[in-house]
Each structure stands twice: as C-alpha cells, then as structure tokens.
Design a protein around this nucleic acid. Structure first.
Lengths: 340, 340
DNA sequence: TTGAAAGCGCTACCAA
DNA sequence: TTGGTAGCGCTTTCAA
C-alpha cells in the first residue's frame, strides 16, 4: 500500500502531527523545530511520501474542486468555438487558484437527490441551466456556492448569474438586417434550447426587436430546427420565406451554411445568416459568419472567479452580471435578393 | 450541517449499517427485511439524505473518477476540432460507465511528487505525453492504471498506449503531394510538440517518406514555427522555398491559411497545405483543408474504455493500439505553381 | 516545542 | 436477519 503520514512519522521518529505541520503548515498552535522539520522533509522525500488528497479533503471538508454542470449533456460541438472558449475561461481561473475541475455524468438527472451536494465539490458552475421548478428548488436548497452561466438576472434562484445582454444582441442583428432591407427575418434555434433561460431570453429579444421595426407580422417566426437537419429545402422556391435567418449558435449556423451550399441556396445572395457568439471560428467559415458577439471566455473566467471568491468566503459585489453584446459584420449578410 | 447516515439510522430506529445496506446494497452478508428497508428508504427521502460521496470514496479507496492529464497545459484550441473530438470520445466512455472526469492544474509540473497518485483518481488518461526521463519514471512508479494517448508503442513506460500510424499518415501526405508534382515539401510544427513522443514520430515519418521518394535533399526540412506567427512572408519572392507544407495540427494549418491570405499567397495556387487530424472542422476552412485523418474520437473512446477495464481489474488484450491513418483530399492542395 | 486522542462519514468485518 | 466495532488518512483540539 501507499506510504502514509504515519509511516513518515515513524521513520522520522516523530508524531504524525509533526509531519502534517511541516508538510502542510496547518495548525498555527503547533510549531516544530527547524532541524526536526528538516529531518521530516528528508524522510518524506526518501519514502516518496505522497499525501493522500482524498483523505485531506475528507477531513477538511474542502476538495478544492469545482463541479461543472451542463443542464443538457450532449456532445461538445466540434464545429464551433463556444466550448473551447468557455473552457479556456474556466480553466484559466481554476488553474490560477489551484482548483480542480470536474465534469461529471448524470448531474442533470440528479433531480430528486438535489444538486451535486455530495462532498465532492466546493462549488458548482452551472452552465446553460434550465429553469424548471425542480432545478430551481434544488439549487435554492443546495448549501454550496453556485454560479450560473447564461442565466438572465431577475429570475430563478438567488445565486450570482452571468449573462450577455441577449435583447441587445438580437436588436443589433435585427437592426443590421433591417437596414440592409430585410423584412422577413426568422430566428432559428434547436428545440432543446427552448427550455433554457437563455433560449427564452433570445426569443423574447427577437420578438421585441422585430416589433420595434413594425415587423411583428405572421412572418415573424421562431423556427425550431434540429441542428443536424436544417429545414432549408423549402426555402428554394418560396417567395414568402424568410430572406434572413438569425441563428441561435455558431454550430447551427455552420450546419445551415453547409446545407445551403449543398442545396444551392447562396449565402448571402439568396439568404442572409447571422450567428451567435462570434468567436474566431466565424472567420474560418465560408462565407465568414456575421455574428452577434458574446464575450464567452471573459464571462466564464469572471464567473469562475466569482464562484471561487464565494467559496473562500468573500462576498461578491452583485448578484447579476450582464455583459453587453457586440456585432461583427462579416460576409454572410447582404441586401436581400431581388425576388423579395 | 448535512444529514448523515447516522441521522437517518436514528430517525428510522435502525443501525447505520442497515441504512448503508439498503441504500447502497454493499455487503452481501447482511440482509434487511423488506419492511425495515421500506422504512429506511422513506426516512432517507423525508430527511433528504444525500450520501457523502467523498466519504464513500475515501472508505472504499475508489473515487469513480478519472484524471485527465495533458503534458502541456496551454489553451484549448478554439480553432480546431481536436479537443472537442477528444473530449467527446472520453466523455461518452466515462458517462456510460458512470465515471467522473477531472481536469486538474499543475499536473505537468508535479514532477518531483510523481504522477497524480494522491487518491483522487482511479486511473489516469495521459494525453500527449512527453517522454522525458522524469515522466517515464513517475508513470512507471505509479501504482494506478494509466493509459497514454498519442504515444507510439515500443518505447516509454509499460502501459497501454494509443496512437495513430504517424508514419503511414506522413507517407500518405507526401505521396499525394509528390504525385501532384511537388518536390520541395516541408513539415511544419510548433516547437513544444518537438518534445512529445508523437512529434518525434511524425518528424521521423516525414523524413522516411521523403527519402522513399529520393527527396531527402537539403530542402527536406522541418520548420518550427510558432502557431501565432507563421513565418510565411519569406515565401513570397522565394524560388527555392517549399511549394507544399505538411502541418502538424489543424490549428496551425488554419493559422497558416490565414497568414497566407493576408500576405497574398494563394492556397493552393502558390502553396499547397496539408493538415493533420481531418475532423469536420476541415470542411469549414477556406479553402477546405486537405488533411491526414486520425480517428481521434474513436481512439479517445477506446483508450478510456481500456483504462476503465483495467481499473475494474479486467486485463486488456494488448499493450499498444495502433490506428491506421486516412487521407482526405479537399481543396488546399494542387499542382505546384509554374514558378517551380 | 511536541504528542495523544478523537473524529470527519462511511462500510468491511465479525459477532449475535 | 440484524448490530457493533473498528478504521480508511488526515487534521483539529487539547494536554504535556
């Protein structure tokens, strides 16, 4: 078996306490003489003593690990910059603070048992939360610090929330398209996102922006398309179809670009497409994707740091963090085709 | 504080043992009557008892968590499909088996203390290992199951290794370019990958393939470019410069495509570019990236399952898994320009 | 300056 | 069919 602290203590002719004090510096009341300390360090090294972090965590009720929860756990998009940007933000914060990061299964299904309040984590970063009653209840009841990403403020459980200004984002997109001359502008998303807080916020933002231009007509529509199968084919010979699409995510945007190309719809000639997020990935698509910009990495970094602060007992200034959206015009939007 | 198993036991008028048996089914020797069991379950639910997983892990010396180690911990590429494909493979395996996945900091720096043999993990998935003496030693000494990704067989520590056939991959790329008429073909990589096992394997594969075509001339060269700054400018007016580049990663390929476009080198007109990995991402680049294909997701999935099998005491068929590479011709390669 | 004892929450082992 | 006891490796609390 592995070397324990007692093995070291015995070999060094001291108590386990002394070893603990020297190697981890806990317990201010106890001090060890410099030569004893030196002996302990030497013996520990000789024996290749490796402190059992599980035991320490258990004893101290502190794991130095953050749990990362997605409300839906499908595949990570390999066709967008979202996840990488998000994880980069989270990881740079956790690494700086010496926290570990655990991604674990079934978190979303842990409905009846409450959230992951099982001793493994010091805090939870909840990404893309749904706002079902169950979720809200279990978050409310959880006595662990929780921070939510992509959660609009003013609703849901009383925890710090990080969100971009979805209303502004949708407004920027609609404004841009209207200015180009579009009037039949649809919003496209995948059905699962309908149940997320952010999904609802974007739908609301879309309708509000359309209305502000007097475009709240029957043509003003949210299309729930699966990411795998954009229902673009019927646009081909359709005079009343949208001339522009605002799409929920980069990944779905790319699927639409690809489908358009394969069925002979030209972007932006026949159809304008606006994406959401605007990472560096949008510069690699064909055509380059015009997109609403959300500072994902910064948001993830900030959210993680707020979580860590609240784990470490510092109180955080505010409970709701709103990040302005930007808008990056690239090549996937243009004036509508003459058929319109 | 949280409800413990003893609270439940007291409330149900039984021993802590009985509760443990009923809720977790451990201990075949002990059986509990059906009505007692029912009472226990009811009380546990009423009290919202949440088993402390940390304590269970500690007691059972089993965390049901796998540690994911990268030898270099920089940023996750947001401009390639690698990390997403890799993580998708790992996660589908861990989720199916109810294992958690922890990404933790400083693993690469844990040189002196050995690998992460600190009780937190049941096994380690080591991705992109370097083969320094220190690393090899600490892996060899670690009494935890370890599996290495991107590690060529026949060298390094005696653990299961997963690798694509880099020699074949480079051969396919060189063959393709030579067939198009290229003779000055360089291999481009970033310096840090030089110290990885896979980096060395690819360099060797490149030289071997070039030699097989009688192209082991002074022009046959490995260029160590930083990913951020491809040194492409000097290619502009240079008659003796490479007409084709084989690039270590998708990410670096994209950087090169972008740089080429910005300084007016046409791909594939002036310069052919071959990437490595060939995920769906290569279909989004401009031009679409011709690339050596490596079944990353499958490899990651298999590697994780082998790791889990060996954690659970099953012995694994072989110690070294080699995956054949494919080659996907897209748009970034063509016959060399007339200047050559 | 040092050590002994107790216990974190849970379960393996043995006794009844 | 059930329960007590001990202990995983470590650190907090108290005593020397």
């Amino acid at each position: 078996m592995a070397i324990t602290i007692r093995d070291v203590a015995k070999a060094a002719g001291v108590s386990a306490m002394a070893v603990s004090k020297v190697l981890h510096g806990k317990g201010a009341n106890v001090r060890v003489g410099p030569d004893t300390a030196e002996t302990i360090r030497r013996v520990a090294k000789e024996l290749r003593y490796q402190p059992n972090r599980l035991a320490r965590s258990f004893r101290q009720q502190k794991t130095n690990t953050i749990g990362l929860v997605f409300s839906r756990f499908g595949r990570i998009g390999d066709l967008d910059g979202y996840f990488a940007a998000f994880l980069n933000g989270v990881m740079s914060a956790t690494f700086q603070s010496e926290y570990g990061l655990t991604i674990c299964p079934k978190l979303s299904r842990s409905s009846s048992t409450g959230v992951v309040n099982d001793g493994r984590f010091d805090g939870i970063l909840w990404c893309k939360p749904d706002y079902t009653v169950q979720t809200a209840e279990s978050i409310q009841r959880c006595d662990l610090p929780i921070v939510m990403m992509h959660a609009p403020g003013g609703q849901g459980p009383d925890v710090p929330k990080f969100c971009c200004d979805n209303e502004l984002g949708l407004k920027l997109a609609v404004d841009h398209l209207v200015e180009l001359g579009h009037r039949r502008i649809a919003f496209v998303m995948d059905a699962p996102n309908r149940s997320t807080a952010e999904g609802r916020a974007r739908i609301a933002g879309y309708y509000a922006a359309m209305e502000s231009h007097g475009l709240a007509t029957p043509d003003c529509n949210v299309l729930f398309w699966s990411i795998e199968q954009p229902e673009l084919a019927r646009f081909r010979e359709c005079d009343a179809c949208p001339t522009a699409l605002i799409v929920f995510s980069e990944r779905q945007s790319v699927a639409i670009l690809k489908e358009a190309e394969s069925i002979g719809i030209s972007v932006p000639g026949d159809l304008s497409v606006v994406g959401f997020d605007s990472t560096a990935f949008c510069d690699t698509t064909r055509p380059r994707l015009t997109a609403i910009r959300q500072p994902i990495e910064q948001m993830a970094f900030d959210a993680t740091n707020v979580l860590i602060s609240s784990i470490e007992g510092q109180n955080c200034p505010s409970n709701s963090y709103l990040y302005p959206c930007g808008f990056d015009i690239r090549e996937s939007t243009a004036i509508p085709a003459s058929r319109c």
